[in-house]
Design a protein around this nucleic acid. Structure first.
Lengths: 187, 187, 187, 187
DNA sequence: GATGAATGAGTTTTCATTCAT
DNA sequence: TATGAATGAAAACTCATTCAT
């Protein structure tokens, strides 16, 4: 059994279950079936542990979201695929979503990655520039486009996880994609 | 001098400056120019204090966002006004935004208002039902519409406060509104 | 309304209800319908207040216990009367009993009256010396006699107040008196 | 070195020296040569710690007081032995006595053992029922008998520890036992 | 590598007392 | 006299981190 992975998984589970506020080393150890001291064999401390988990998730996300992406495909198709990938990633691993959200909104909690907060959005930027060149995506600032993609996705996942909507319902995702696309597409 | 308000303002300032994680009663007291014990004259404890602040901000937001709303106005106009009000509220009081975000993403931190997390969205729901009736807003589930309104707004404010975009730039807001409207409007 | 008396009564009630451990000035004030600061107009502080109450009760007890005492009466009669007075005093004012007990067993709590712990027993000493002279009470050390009088009385009251016995039952007191007398009487 | 025992011993010493009122965790730790936090490894908190100590002492007492007790012995002999055991227990470990007294008279301080207050008297009850059957002990309610045994014992120990009497003096105990026996014995 | 008892600085909270009104 | 808001020292308790085994 890989203790390092077990520890990271514990953090993920606990942050999701009880929030950053109640996260403590003893519980992490207990959840991972490991002694408290063992954590310090793999991580410098609490901060390091959390930052490591964050990096891990961001990497996984970026890999996942780009699956099926091909420059040759129409932008719209790539857009749909990416949204789909992103949503799938979080719906199948909801703990990741909760963790990322909490991490992002904890200013100065763990300074190291301060500038990486939007790192996980990099694939989206790529697609936007192509779309603009081809004239299928509105010629408005990237940051505004970003808000029109990332924002709805973020909220719809949140609503789904809070059982306020059901993205698995027949046609639900399609409606969402179409509407989201309208926001950024040239008419 | 109202000590209760001073304490609430301190929390807001400190949460924004250093995050929930580093918030402690001694600093709150110092920031409010008050003795530590004084906080307990007005609040039962840390949780109560934070919940009180949350309620206060949500109330202020709801009042602010509905300014200028009139049933007689076209839905689109009300939509623009509301988005505008919301953005203005947070841009002029950015600490409020940061606080609400952190509060929302801290599961089980302070259970009391668990169901109020989306309370501050109530004005939006009102507008959506009217728009659907009139046929100007897409006939898709409210939760999806919500994600298309709340999501972009949320992200654009975040980007603005992080200096990744500038909503005060000439024409910026208008572009944003138009695009956001496209997402929810019937073509 | 005499605020000083109200304060003393509050202490008595609260010590009885919740114990010394939970006694605090704010509750005393509330119970007495008085502001916290008012207590300090009548007493130097918490210690002084409690010591004053102790002295008050001891005085009342001493007065009460000697009612009907007359040097001319037979020692046995005076003994019965005193036991009877003592028991009546505490049964009609059980708060007094609880207070005295707690005060007595709180070493160094309030140093002032340290040596007065057995002060309230002075009437008993008087009777013992007379009884010995007359040859009706055993010629054993006063301290042992004291234990044989004070001890049973103390315990029987405690048991009565804890509903483990009922001194108001017909004949109960008489049985108790007779047995207690046997312990100290010359056969 | 057993830290748990060291902590319990510290509480005993400090309660005896300064009373419940002044008992605090920092001093307990210091007295036990242990860090403050260590106490919480073995006890949930102050209440738990004190309740644990109470249980420990009551158990020790009950074991000690029954030493030499045999159903075959005459009741009077068992009575003398038990009184002797009890007195010896408390005279050799006076801190135990003070602690038990304070614990008993602190209503609602620590609720858990509320009904065990008289638990430590259980051996006495046993003896009384036998004595009554044999006709050597007065046929009066157990509760009254109890007061005539427990009461004097309690008070004489208190007086001894307060240096108001000296049970180690030649013949002192015997006088006390004889008198105490007279109270409960059939003439 | 692995443990988990122990630490003690730091945190929340309480409360006797003061003092401006 | 009387008030009760305010104080701040002291209390109970937490928890990241260390280290002997």
């Amino acid at each position: 059994m890989d203790k390092k992975q077990a520890i990271l998984k514990s953090v993920l589970k606990l942050v999701n279950r009880e929030g950053f506020y109640h996260l403590n080393m003893k519980n992490i150890a207990k959840e991972a079936n490991v002694a408290a001291g063992t954590i310090y064999l793999y991580f410098k401390g609490k901060e390091d542990l959390i930052n490591a988990l964050y990096s891990m998730i961001v990497n996984e996300f970026n890999q996942h979201v780009l699956q099926g992406y091909e420059d040759e495909k129409p932008v719209k198709e790539n857009f749909y695929d990416m949204l789909n990938n992103a949503i799938e990633f979080y719906l199948t691993q909801p703990d990741n979503f909760s963790f990322i959200e909490q991490y992002t909104y904890a200013p100065f909690l763990f300074k190291e990655n301060q500038n990486d907060n939007f790192l996980l959005l990099s694939p989206i930027y790529k697609m936007m520039s192509v779309g603009k060149k081809e004239g299928v995506i509105r010629n408005i600032p990237d940051s505004i486009l970003l808000s029109l993609i990332h924002g709805p996705m973020n909220t719809i996942i949140k609503l789904h996880l809070a059982h306020k909507t059901d993205l698995n319902k027949r046609g639900a995702k399609q409606k969402f994609f179409d509407a989201a696309w309208s926001a950024i597409a040239v008419v």
